[in-house]
Design a protein around this nucleic acid. Structure first.
Length: 578
DNA sequence: GCCGTTTTCGGCCCGACTGTTTTCAGTCG
């Protein structure tokens, strides 16, 4: 994790604190903006400062004199006076509750001022004993809402969205590979299975000197606490949040250990049952017939020993993959390499930060044939949704730009809002001029069932994809009410694709719904929903989710060539207008 | 605290919804 991220988090925390302290709200906005800019900034901020000093920092949009000074102070001294000052003025632990749906700065401040609430425990107590409910403005509905928000938050708190762990794990693995003693290395656990959230992160290595490998591991940059450090196992907390366990096993047991630590538990139990019926025993050290080890060096060997083909990690949930494997009916899963483009990206035209040129350039680097620019529509005011005129201007610029591009094409698209009555936020005459149309629900009334809105949107001949179909946010909210089975049925009927939104906090559709969609023969579209080019890597999360839902390349429209994709998008038009 | 065809002060996105009010505050997107 570089200093960009560290600084970004500092400014974010300060923004939270200032909001709690009732500072000028525009100052709060400025801090938040600085945090976002820093997080998104493609270059290492330390490098920028080293080369150009405070002046170079100020040249970054959103960073002015005062914030530049603070950044410089931190980079020079490792401290930021203002940060420490502000943090000393607020109950820091309490502020973590700002992440809870339904709790804002005013509510916290009220509890702090009137009830002396200082900690999360305090807050829960006043919530339960009714003293919070007695304060002005706090009715029963509000209390109920906060309780539900807290429940969801608690349930998710110990698990980490995979997208947050992903860069860290890759960083650790890359760092470990530099050590000569490390031979083979891989992540395992739910991370390797690409589950949407992960608990502890497990990494497995083989190597010649366990103690040295573990010692190197617990001294990696980013380690804030060491929990264990021995010959075969090390455990450390990275960045105060992520627990990472590293295991070193003998070369001949690597496959068995990888299989064992990848899980899932249910999958492993099922495998062991089969092994037992064959007079074999599977452990993390190998597959044994009596005392004789008959497999273990490679994972495929382990599966082969009990008469199965190798099963991709993403399928190992005991959701029928073992039976499918035994019957020779495992799906040939889509792979990242099959993906020819990203089908949901925001540009600077709405609430993204990248220009069309930057997106095109990055798409080319990623080896894409195309990338769909899907900015927000008029009604999405908070996201600078595009008025029709501005959309037309964007389309023209894309058409022009495409003539000068080599090897990659931008698709003129939109993420059009599905309005409360199910109409779309742009008229058909406008939509028909676009290459790619994602339609999404962004606003809904509490407890509203949005199924009919989405069904109606799918009837539109110009809608190619339903964006993030359930609206859930992994760490924040459950999403709107929607009958996913009806959506899938209608998607099949109208040949509308459903999105696998690959943004780490969405992963929507989620794995089980992807599987349902596949069983119904529905096409799926993977889009990162990236708002800057630093988020395009999340395609791998979308592909992981697709794989967890048993997707083959045939069901994913991103595997189509440009020509095939254009043909597919226009075929709906033709069919629906007949 | 940032920024400038609104230019060194004064605006910065703001409407919708909800729940709580009796005219509005808090939260969200």
């Amino acid at each position: 994790m570089n200093k960009n991220k560290v600084l970004s988090e500092m400014f974010d925390r300060m923004a939270d604190a200032l909001e709690f302290l009732d500072e000028n709200r525009f100052k709060v906005i400025a801090y938040r903006k600085a945090a976002r800019v820093l997080e998104d900034y493609p270059e290492d901020i330390e490098e920028v400062y080293r080369k150009g000093g405070v002046k170079a920092l100020k040249a970054i949009p959103g960073i002015g004199e005062r914030i530049a000074q603070k950044i410089a102070e931190y980079l020079e001294t490792g401290h930021m006076h203002k940060y420490e000052e502000v943090m000393s003025m607020v109950p820091q632990e309490l502020l973590t509750l700002l992440d809870v749906q339904g709790i804002g700065p005013r509510t916290l401040r009220l509890a702090y001022d009137k009830l002396g609430v200082r900690t999360v425990e305090d807050f829960k107590r006043v919530l339960e004993d009714g003293s919070l409910a007695r304060l002005p403005g706090m009715g029963p509905k509000k209390i109920e809402n906060i309780k539900k928000g807290l429940e969801l938050y608690e349930r998710m708190r110990d698990r980490i969205p995979i997208g947050l762990a992903f860069p860290l794990v890759n960083e650790i693995i890359e760092a470990m590979k530099k050590l000569d003693e490390v031979n083979r290395i891989s992540a395992c656990g739910s991370f390797r299975r690409m589950k949407e959230t992960v608990g502890d992160l497990d990494i497995l290595t083989t190597g010649t000197d366990g103690r040295k490998i573990i010692d190197y591991f617990v001294h990696l940059p980013g380690v804030t606490r060491v929990l264990a450090s021995g010959d075969t196992k090390g455990s450390a907390i990275f960045h105060d949040r992520y627990q990472v366990d590293l295991r070193v096993v003998p070369e001949e047991s690597y496959g068995a250990a990888l299989q064992y630590f990848t899980g899932s538990k249910q999958h492993n139990v099922h495998l062991r049952t089969i092994a037992k019926s064959m007079g074999l025993k599977i452990s993390e050290y190998g597959v044994f017939k009596g005392d004789e080890m008959i497999a273990g060096k490679d994972e495929a060997e382990v599966y082969k020993a009990i008469g199965l083909p190798w099963i991709p990690p993403e399928l190992r949930e005991d959701w029928g993959e073992i039976e499918a494997a035994a019957a020779g009916k495992l799906p040939l899963l889509v792979e990242l390499n099959d993906i020819k483009g990203d089908l949901h990206v925001h540009s600077r035209y709405s609430d993204g930060t990248a220009t069309l040129e930057e997106i095109a350039e990055r798409a080319r680097e990623l080896g894409y044939e195309y990338i769909a620019i899907c900015d927000h529509s008029v009604s999405a005011k908070y996201a600078h949704g595009l008025e029709i005129e501005r959309l037309k201007e964007k389309v023209e610029r894309i058409r022009k730009l495409n003539k000068s591009l080599d090897g990659v094409r931008l698709l003129a698209g939109t993420e059009v809002d599905i309005l409360p009555d199910g109409r779309l936020d742009y008229p058909d005459e406008v939509l028909k001029q676009l290459d790619f149309v994602v339609a999404s629900v962004h606003t809904w009334r509490k407890d509203e069932d949005v199924t009919d809105r989405i069904l109606r949107a799918m009837e539109n001949p110009y809608v190619h994809v339903i964006g993030h179909p359930t609206g859930r946010l992994i760490s924040q909210r459950e999403g709107y009410q929607v009958d996913i089975d009806k959506i899938i049925e209608k998607a099949a009927e109208t040949d509308t694709a459903l999105e696998i939104n690959a943004y780490y906090d969405r992963l929507d559709l989620r794995d089980i719904n992807v599987r349902k969609a596949n069983e119904a023969g529905v096409k799926l579209s993977i889009g990162t929903d990236a708002h800057n080019i630093g988020q395009l890597w999340m395609m791998v999360l979308g592909v992981g989710t697709a794989r967890r839902g048993w997707s083959t390349p045939q069901s994913i429209i991103n595997t189509m060539s440009y020509d095939e994709l254009i043909q597919w998008t226009s075929s709906k038009k033709e069919r629906m207008s007949q």
